[in-house]
Amino acid sequence: MPIVDQQMTKQTSPNSNPPVRKDFLAAKDFNFFYGKKQALYDINIEIPERQVTAFIGPSGCGKSTLLRNFNRMNELIEGVRHEGDIRLLGKSIYDKSVEVISLRRSIGMVFQKSNPFPKSIYENVVYGLRISGQSKKSTLDEAVERSLRGAALWEEVKDRLHESALGLSGGQMQRLCIARAIANRPKVLLMDEPCSALDPIATVKVEELIRELKKEFTIVIVTHNMQQATRCSDETAFFYLGKLIEFDRTQKIFSNPSEKQTEDYITGRFG
């Protein structure tokens, strides 16, 4: 794993990596409905490659809803409907040729509450590989080590890979869920308030991990914690009542927002 200095990553991207794509993941005129209730209004957003993009806004503003549309998780709810399009690398995720199971392997997700399966640590990590038919032991072993190292968990669990994942601490469980997601080698990692159930120390670890992971992955993180957004995101999108109010560099959003609503929110005047 190339250890690249934090500041260098963006400008001087190593020549092995292709140039950063601005519209890696994009929503176009996207509307979303739960039954008759509209949850998202005309969302247009372009999420850049290998950056951390934070979605902020008060509860119910639609930030999680949009996130869960990127890997079509919302389709599991009955009576939902969407208009417009979401594109990954320019191709619609709603295209007929897209198997939703392949899409979800390409766009990994980490949830608010860690949700390891009641299986061993090892089996949790290789779950995605197993269901897609990979059963070669050496490949699985290699994937487990790579993913657990990637999630900064390897040193802590390497001696008890075959013990139940439910014996881990809250922070370890969440990092296991991250390991499980990156074992699929996704293009994008969606994180839905990944630290909201963790204590401050575990939160710091996961945030460090997020900054590390963006060298390899495009990350979208939903958070209700504005400090967290400033600490680990490059871009920030502010949502309010189902609309995207403002989307800009994180620094710009928190120092000099263009919209009055954004300013009110980040200064704590509502929400």
Binding site: L89, E99, I101, S102, S106, I131, G133, E216
Partner: peptide
């Protein structure tokens, strides 16, 4: 870490083998 972040331009065309498998799994 090897090139997890690199991608073919069309992300859905994983390899042919896996795509066939995915269709089999859906069936």
């Amino acid at each position: 870490m090897d090139n997890i972040g690199t991608h073919s331009l069309d992300f859905f065309e994983l390899d042919h083998n896996e795509n066939t498998k995915a269709m089999g799994r859906s069936l």
